[in-house]
């Protein structure tokens, strides 16, 4: 099955790329690494009139220390670069772990940080061939007014299945978005809309350019755990990222717990922070935190495994992610 026809545009700068995207008003696309988008093109989930070469964005491939001691990562940085980066490993381990869990090595060689953050939401009734989809009425995400996953569902709950975003939210990351009329920096949490039909805030003309992570102190630990059926390839069926900072007494100063792949956006569990901060970790505390995460996770039946199983696994993954973090493996 060939790709749909489109023009190929090669802007010379990021600004020119933004202008083209703006003029295209949704009909021009950026490929990034293309590992997900090419598949969406082939199944005609997108039929852009033109595709922009990523050459103009190649300046966005970097991982470096920021002036405030934090980390900045260009959107075109590959996941392979992320997993091998000593800068990431040293203080932001949860991100490296999450990167290693994505797809398989040849995918990580080309897939980018920006592409992963901008992944479209997924649903087993949506990520199908054109022939398959045409056999039933269009769902919300396709512009129709039904949901095939949930009987009488009233909105789209397609799942955001990126591995990096939960880790980055746990690290308190922000993203820099470049547009025609300038740029802005917003917390990554605000990047996601929670709407399955349109999972992020990018408008035509916007390009996610950079991820900025606040500085990490020496006693910050992180852990990422992913539910998958195979040792590779799979998108997360649920994901849990945690970042924990302890003080000299071993008590928790800061903690963020974020769930992935159970909703249209990464889902933070603020109750976990409330429970953890000021405490030392005990089994019963861990149990309570896992319960809070379980309460918050409300996956629906739109992936290849049962929703109640995914929900139960959140409890398990939370314990493991925190365990991995505090054991120093993180």
């Amino acid at each position: 099955m060939q790709l749909p026809r489109f023009d190929f545009l090669q802007p010379r700068s990021l600004q020119e790329a933004c202008s083209i995207l703006r003029e295209g008003n949704g009909k021009v696309s950026v490929l990034a690494g293309g590992t997900a988008f090419m598949v969406a093109l082939r199944s005609r989930l997108h039929t852009p009139s033109a595709v922009i070469s990523t050459k103009a964005l190649s300046e966005l491939s970097y991982i470096r220390e920021a002036s405030d001691g934090g980390l900045v990562i260009g959107a075109m940085t590959t996941l392979e670069a992320l997993e091998n980066s000593p800068l990431v490993a040293n203080g932001y381990a949860v991100l490296g772990q999450a990167a290693r869990f994505v797809g398989v090595p040849p995918i990580r060689h080309v897939a980018t940080v920006g592409g992963n953050l901008c992944l479209d939401t997924r649903c087993i009734f949506y990520n199908q061939s054109e022939f398959w989809r045409k056999a039933r009425p269009d769902c919300f995400k396709l512009g129709g007014d039904v949901c095939h996953a949930i009987d009488k569902g009233r909105r789209c709950l397609a799942v955001y299945q990126g591995d990096l975003a939960p880790a980055l939210v746990a690290l308190g990351a922000r993203v820099r978005i470049v547009g025609v009329s300038g740029e802005k920096v917003i917390p990554l949490t605000q990047f996601y809309t929670g709407n399955g039909e349109k999972p992020n805030v990018l408008e035509p003309g916007d390009i996610l350019a950079e991820v900025q992570i606040p500085p990490s102190s020496g006693n910050t630990w992180g852990g990422y755990e992913k539910l998958r059926v195979r040792e590779g390839m799979d998108f997360p069926l649920a994901g849990v990222a945690v970042s924990i900072k302890t003080n000299a007494n071993g008590a928790i100063d800061q903690a963020r717990l974020v769930l992935g792949a159970v909703a249209p956006s990464p889902l933070e569990v603020p109750e976990a922070t409330e429970l953890l901060v000021g405490q030392k970790l005990t089994d019963s505390l861990l149990e309570s935190v896992a319960q809070k995460a379980y309460d918050r996770a409300r996956p629906v039946a739109n992936l290849a495994v049962d929703a109640s199983y995914r929900r139960k696994m959140v409890r398990v993954l939370v314990k493991r992610a925190i365990g991995r973090a505090v054991s120093g493996n993180g």
């Binding site: 190929f8 490929l31 293309g34 590992t35 090419m38 598949v39 595709v51 070469s53 990523t54 050459k55 090595p105 040849p106 995918i107 060689h109 080309v110």
Partner: peptide, 18 residues
């Protein structure tokens, strides 16, 4: 799979023009 500058990649996911 082909090699792109020595690394294994999926040629079905790359535009030739890129």
């Amino acid at each position: 799979t082909v090699l792109l500058d020595g690394a294994a990649v999926r040629s079905c996911l790359l535009l030739a023009a890129e």
